Computed example of a mutant assay.
Amino acid sequence: MARSSLMPVFDGHNDVLLRLIRGKTEPERDFLEGDNQGHLDLPRMKKGGFVGGFFAVYVPSDSGGLDIDALMTKPEYDVPLPAELDLAPSQKVTLHMASLLMRIERASKGTVKICRTAADLRHCIDTGTLATILHIEGAEGIDADLHMLDVLYESGLRSIGPVWSRPNIFGHGVPFRYPSTPDTGPGLTERGKDLVRACNRLKVMIDLSHLNEKGFWDVVKLSDAPLVATHSNAHAISPHSRNLTDKQLAAIRESRGMVGVNFATSFIRPDGQRNDDTPLEEMIRHMDHLIEHVGVDGVGFGSDFDGATIPNEIGDVAGLPRLVDAMRKHGYDDATLRKLCYENWVNVLERTWGK
């Protein structure tokens, strides 16, 4: 990626790998050369100043015939949690998506890199190489004995969300429910606690974004790493079950952790609606609140690109400069913008992984 005068943006979450494996015959080429589908591909990343982010490996659930988009346009909704997934098919999808990121790296001939250290991240940003982090969103592909964790770690895995919004052997995900607190069920299982301890030993980041509140506090008790929610917003502004309470934000601040602001409109809007006609000012309200409660060094972006309905003022990754301009007009100075756009992510990963 060529260097540019755009504000660099490092992002806490995207689902482009899932988009690419669905019906794509040449997904590596589509990503590297650009297919203008969804929110992300390399040419549009260059236009938007996107220098890197967490690339999620996610095993999708069957919707069971539910029109989830329609449910989330009602004044109140409670999307039923999907059933647990079986290990073998989950491992197959996990390996497929992890392999795709490796193939993209190989096909890029040096313009994309899977980062394993904070030094890798810094080098990529300095040289204009797209920095990618192999991340798991929902650990259904990891066995109870954690053998797959070792294999994936050696392949570059450096971040895990133990659950998505469904139960698994490690814990219970928070449902898509509005209005609701995040206190929606039991926390981590004993296997989930083992997974947290193993991640601490390996210095793999633990992502709290889809855990319910009891699971969140289980991680607080167990983990010696900064608390990180890669793509979550403020419950005080949008009372959605997926958002974080001020008490949770205080714990993240105490740990010198991080929150990535989610661009998904249903977690931004006070009415919880999935509606792309959502002003950027609503997103900036969350940034202000998170800065107040976590600190200016603990807030960044967690877009959920290719996995959510985002404000039409952004549109796709090429629209990131419009968000940065809105933040600047709101009053954030250049030093604050650099922290929010990329520096805070690099710093929290350095605190988590080491140098």
Rank of each mutant, 00 (worst) to 15 (best):
S5C: 01
L6N: 14
V9E: 05
D11K: 10
D11C: 02
H13C: 12
H13N: 12
R19W: 10
G23E: 11
P27T: 09
D35W: 14
Q37D: 12
P43K: 11
M45Q: 13
K47T: 11
F54A: 12
A56E: 07
G64T: 13
M72S: 01
T73F: 00
T73V: 06
Y77M: 04
A83F: 05
K92W: 07
V93W: 09
T94Y: 06
L95D: 04
A98L: 13
M102W: 13
K109H: 15
V112D: 07
I114T: 02
R116V: 09
T117D: 00
A119L: 09
C124P: 04
T132G: 05
A139T: 05
L146S: 13
H147A: 14
M148F: 14
S159K: 00
W164K: 00
R166G: 03
G171D: 07
Y178A: 10
Y178F: 15
D183L: 07
G185W: 03
L188G: 02
L195E: 00
C199Q: 08
M205W: 09
D207L: 02
L208V: 05
S209G: 12
H210C: 11
N212M: 06
E213A: 10
V219T: 06
L227Q: 13
L227F: 07
D246F: 02
Q248I: 00
R269N: 08
D277W: 10
T278N: 07
P279D: 08
M283P: 04
R285G: 02
L290D: 06
G302M: 01
A308E: 01
E313C: 08
D316I: 03
D316M: 04
A318Y: 05
L323I: 01
D325M: 11
M327G: 13
M327F: 13
G331I: 06
R338Y: 04
K339C: 04
L340F: 10
N347R: 15
E350F: 00
G354R: 04
